[in-house]
């Protein structure tokens, strides 16, 4: 993934344009583990949204292989996102009324009616590999650590090439955070996916190949 001359601009309450994110040039090789560090509100999540194709930058281009994301229409970006991108959020964002299994296979329902036997088995394997028991339990009754593991399984169900995680351990206690971090790195290694994590957690950032700092919307050199 290559970001070139990317900026995201918004209007303030007086209608004046201001820049919330500016990335001169960022190239992310396949299989890399990239950390995004910086204070809250600096623009890390906005950068993840741009990489996920959720937010079209005001200027510049985001290129994935031969595909320029900003050239795609909304629907095409949605299809691209579910094909190549897995996402994990700070608040897990599960559907509490659905079971563990139903949450994990939810992204499949965007493009097909029922999961195939193989897909269902893959979901159950992921659930098992992530240490979750009883796939029929509703998400609402799970602990926070379990919820984040379900979110991780959901992100991986379509074998994404790139996994974006926004503060994946911020809502977890220390023990759960360590467990989820280990699982995250394990599964990414197994799936040979590119991992991009926005986090304040030094334990996570220390395990990344490169860490970019985002300060006041400006992406700084990797450390």
């Amino acid at each position: 993934m290559i970001l070139s001359g990317v900026s995201v601009q918004r209007r303030d309450s007086n209608g004046r344009l201001f820049t919330t994110l500016s990335v001169a040039d960022l190239s992310i090789p396949a299989g890399a583990r990239i950390g995004l560090a910086g204070p809250s509100g600096a623009g890390k999540s906005t950068l993840l949204d741009v990489m996920a194709g959720l937010l079209v930058p005001s200027t510049g281009t985001v290129t994935w292989g031969a595909t320029v994301l900003s050239d795609l229409c909304d629907r095409e970006r949605a299809v691209w996102r579910r094909t190549y991108v897995g996402q994990v959020f700070q608040d897990f964002l599960l559907i509490p009324e659905l079971s563990i299994l139903a949450n994990v296979v939810l992204p499949l329902s965007f493009s097909q009616f029922w999961p195939s036997g193989d897909q269902r088995q893959r979901a159950l394997d992921l659930i098992h590999d992530l240490g979750l028991k009883d796939a029929g339990r509703r998400a609402a009754v799970l602990s926070r650590g379990e919820q984040q593991r379900v979110a991780l399984a959901r992100a991986l169900i379509l074998r994404p090439s790139i996994l974006l995680a926004d503060e994946p351990t911020a809502s977890l206690d220390q023990a759960s955070a360590a467990l989820v971090t280990d699982l995250l790195f394990d599964v990414v290694r197994q799936h040979q996916a590119t991992l991009i994590i926005a986090s304040h957690d030094p334990a996570i950032l220390s395990r990344m190949d490169h860490v970019h700092h985002v300060v006041a919307g400006q992406l700084q050199e990797a450390s």
């Binding site: 909304d74 949605a78 996102r81 579910r82 559907i95 965007f110 959901r154």
Partner: peptide, 12 residues
């Protein structure tokens, strides 16, 4: 919004 982030279209 979660669904959209996970790859659902507006139509979905």
């Amino acid at each position: 919004a979660i669904l959209r982030a996970l790859g659902a279209t507006r139509g979905y």
